[in-house]
Design a protein around this nucleic acid. Structure first.
Length: 579
DNA sequence: GCCGTTTTCGGCCCGACTGTTTTCAGTCG
């Protein structure tokens, strides 16, 4: 049977939790399942390995019961208890809980008191005013649910991080422009956007202002041109849906509360739960308004960092706040010294007009030099990638001459001769080794025949990685966010091969790829492999995407020395010349 | 269901907003 992925198991556990909730089970039991689902989702190791080692119960939050359920799901593809629950509850009831403002309790009521088994039946009951007769429902609930029913599928599911950052900037500027200067004391995007997750579900914006301005500011938010629908609006919290179908939550606090609100609102939820427990252990209470002692007096908090310090921790950057070991590491002073954009000395993956780029070699070089880089590599596509105007041997040789010419004009800056060579289905490369050996740097990547078995694809990629001419494996898993799933490949084996053959694994900074992702980057580092963060730019504007790649690296616990393009030119060349 | 430098039983993060209520439950983050 096909192995289930961590993600699929996580989804099943969460679904189990939802089913239990609809059935009115103990809320802490439900929480345990949801907690376990989150743990599995953010797990680095592969579940099948943990099952083999019988070490599931080592994960905090997973005990005998849930470990048993996971094993059962793995062996049989389903859990007996879950199937029984599903038999009791039609799938439409679970679907109902996806409608805004309709949770498990009310779904339970609708099913057991009105016998509603599907979203369609719910709609009919709402239209016939049947629902308002239930206890706890009324005419307003009826209207809200009808509206939610229209929209619940229309809303955007998730957007990529770059879109979220742009959208947040737009909203922040729009709000700033709608009020007098000085009203907004501080404003910051929080949530998963601040943690720089690769995909974002909704946007959270924190605003500091004076108490007397809260009401008018709340009103301003609901009146923004970008606001399509108001979900809720109080003087502390406003939730809207934008014209693009994106949910945005605003929180309004005082300047004094801003640091603790910033921490709270940045999350992740799992990180916050741990931090609040930790506060409790210190006989304190942590919430969005501050760190509060038992006698209700506040501890003076000037910055987010102060919160960590008061709880005996080193400062944890937002990218690491996922409850994946950062709190323990902060307590023991072994957090990584996270890599920063300013550590990057050059970009080793980009395209010029020789293939599918928009600019000449000189234009790309000049733009990179202006950015403050000390080197770049021009890495156009090889011949078989016809859709991207892949180069023949002759054009490659012409390009090498041109790079020599341009380098003569560049002072204190170097353009490396590179190529992005296709990995053919049999694992061979699209150019002979003899030609590749003339280059400073060879990137290998897969652009065709994605639908191979895991064994075939793994063998294909490992063969390329082990070729001594290859220095970098680009976008190793081939995924396009929101577009194409990663091809099937055993990354653990690829990482081992990269380590043995001194090949760097790329974090491709294109916000559509972000490949490797945070988890695999962390895994690669732990295995001792080296990485490289590049933009794959086809336009020099895309050099700016490097920040997204660096965010992935930060989320993956990477430090400067794990990434070859933080090296100065001499050290980099030494790495490239080693086999 | 999970967990334990006071515990194997009795807790489990904390708060905002809404609608239905007359003090609160449900939903959401």
């Amino acid at each position: 049977m096909e192995k289930l992925t961590n993600k699929e198991v996580s989804k099943l556990l969460a679904e189990f939790g939802d089913l239990l909730a609809i059935n009115g089970e103990n809320e802490f039991k439900i929480r345990a399942y949801n907690n376990a689902a989150r743990k599995i989702q953010s797990l680095e190791a592969n579940l099948s390995e943990l099952i083999k080692e019988d070490s599931l119960e080592d994960i905090k939050g997973i005990g005998k019961g849930i470990a048993g359920t996971i094993k059962e799901i793995f062996e049989n593809g389903f859990s007996q208890e879950m199937e029984e629950l599903k038999r009791e509850l039609p799938s439409g009831v679970l679907e109902m809980t996806k409608i805004p403002n309709l949770g498990p309790k009310r779904a339970h009521q609708l099913y057991y008191e009105l016998g509603l088994k599907s979203v369609a039946e719910l709609r009919e009951a709402l239209e016939n005013n049947k629902v308002r007769e239930l206890k706890g429902f009324g005419p307003k609930s009826e209207q809200k649910l009808l509206k939610g029913l229209q929209n619940y599928k229309k809303y955007v599911d998730r957007i990529i991080i770059s879109q979220a950052v742009e959208e947040a900037d737009k909203l922040i500027n729009a709000l700033k422009n709608s009020v007098e200067e000085g009203i907004i004391k501080n404003i910051e995007v929080c949530g998963s956007t601040r943690r720089r997750k690769e995909m974002i579900g909704d946007i959270d914006i924190l605003v500091a202002c004076a108490a007397e301005d809260k009401e008018s500011l709340s009103k301003k938010i609901t009146e923004l041109e970008l606001t399509d629908e108001i979900i809720g609006a109080g003087d502390k919290k406003v939730s809207i849906i934008t014209c693009d179908g994106l949910q945005v939550d605003f929180r309004l606090v005082s300047s004094e509360e801003f640091p603790s609100a910033l921490h709270y609102f940045t999350g992740s939820q799992a990180h916050n739960v741990r931090m609040r427990q930790l506060a409790k252990d210190h006989n304190l209470k942590l919430n969005e308004y501050g760190l509060i002692k038992n006698d209700d007096s506040r501890i003076d908090i000037k910055s987010e960092e102060d919160i960590f310090v008061h709880l005996g921790l080193k400062y944890i950057i937002p990218e690491l706040r996922e409850d994946s070991g950062e709190i323990e590491a902060a307590a023991e002073d072994r957090l990584p010294v996270s890599i920063e954009v300013s550590d990057i000395k050059g970009d080793l993956h980009m395209h010029s007009r020789y293939s599918d780029g928009a600019f000449t070699i000189e234009e790309m070089g000049e733009a990179a030099r202006k950015r403050g880089y000390s080197y770049i590599a021009i890495t156009d596509h090889s011949k078989s990638l016809k859709v991207a105007n892949g180069m023949s041997v002759e054009r490659l040789k012409k390009q090498l001459q041109e790079i020599d010419e341009v380098n003569k004009k560049m002072d204190g800056f170097r353009i490396l001769k590179g190529i992005e060579v296709d990995i053919m289905p049999d694992g061979s490369l699209d150019f002979e080794d003899e030609i590749l050996s003339e280059l400073d740097l060879v990137i290998a990547s897969v652009h065709s025949s994605f639908a191979m078995t895991e064994e075939e694809m793994t063998a294909r990629i490992i063969k390329a990685v082990k070729n001594t001419e290859v220095n970098i494996l680009a976008h190793p898993r081939g995924r396009i966010l929101g577009g194409r799933a990663a091809y099937k490949v055993d990354m653990n084996q690829v990482i081992e091969a990269a380590l043995e053959s001194n090949t760097a694994l790329e974090i491709n900074s294109s916000p559509h790829r972000l490949d490797l992702d945070d988890k695999w980057s962390r895994r690669a580092k732990e295995a001792g492999a080296l990485l490289t963060i590049n933009t794959d730019a086809h336009h020099y504007r895309e050099f700016n995407d490097i920040k997204y790649g660096v965010s992935v690296a930060r989320r993956g616990w990477l430090e400067k020395d794990d990434v070859i393009n933080t090296f100065d030119l001499d050290k980099l060349m030494k790495f490239l010349r080693e086999d």
